[in-house]
Amino acid sequence: MSTDAARLAGPRFRQAGKARRIGRLGGALALWLILATIALSTLYPLFFLVATALRTTQDYRLSPAGIPHELTLDNIHLAFSEVEIGKLALNSLMVVVPAVIIVTVFACLAAYALVHFRFPLRRSALVVVVALMALPPAVVLIPIFKVVLEAGLLNNRLGLILVYSALNLPFSIFLMASFMRSVPDELLNAARIDGAGPLRTLWSVVIPLVRPGLLTLVTLNFLFMWNEFLYALVILQKETNRTIMVGIAQFQSHWEKNLGVVSAGLLLSMIPPLLIFLFFQRDLARGLTSGAVK
């Protein structure tokens, strides 16, 4: 299927016999149908969550996948009053926002150094960064927990903020470095001749040029941290600072029977990342490529 799509999709230079044109039209239609089917599979979960969150459990049981008939806002109410989804979301934001800021700033500085300066061990540093990227978070869970503990940061938001920053730094540096490679060295040299210091150059020359990349980084880090579960579970054990994914995993087992409430909670938990995504969607498209192409 995909090979066909690729052929059809090839560069468009063609002269046409009528039969050929019809064939092409049919091909385009087939391609469109394939794409539409895939899009259906990615959009349907959203519809499913919305539908399940807005219907009664009895109605859900009649046709779980179909169109709801008995609408209700009870599930949303319960998600706020019983699951306290608002409080959970606030807790998450209080961790994720500072962590995203830290990781973005640190990654920018480091990538700037790695790309635009020549110094010994530069290549090794890059290799280390790439190597650390593939580290499965579960592998270092225990020793990181120990470090956080010894630093007295257990049950402290700062502990999780720093851990999230560290876990996402390698990937962020890697991505930022890819973006920054597209900034020509001549521009930096010009800035230096004008007497701008390294930080000033970074701020007023490099950053504006990698803006889409920067926003991409912010989006991806936000998504990752918002959805993270394991570290949040063991580092923030108190109910007062529990993050949204831990809260959801927990109420999922409590409310399992009431899929409506579970769906309402899941749906509400998706709003912040969805907003971020919608907001930065355009930059995301540009950002990811500017990193990849160079």
Partner: peptide, 24 residues
């Protein structure tokens, strides 16, 4: 009294973490 509901599935991990941390 602060009565904290913990998730059934996650409880062993939490308890283990609490003992390792000697805090909980």
């Amino acid at each position: 009294v602060e009565h904290v509901a913990q998730g059934f599935e996650q409880y062993p991990a939490l308890v283990q973490a609490a003992f390792t941390a000697r805090e909980g």
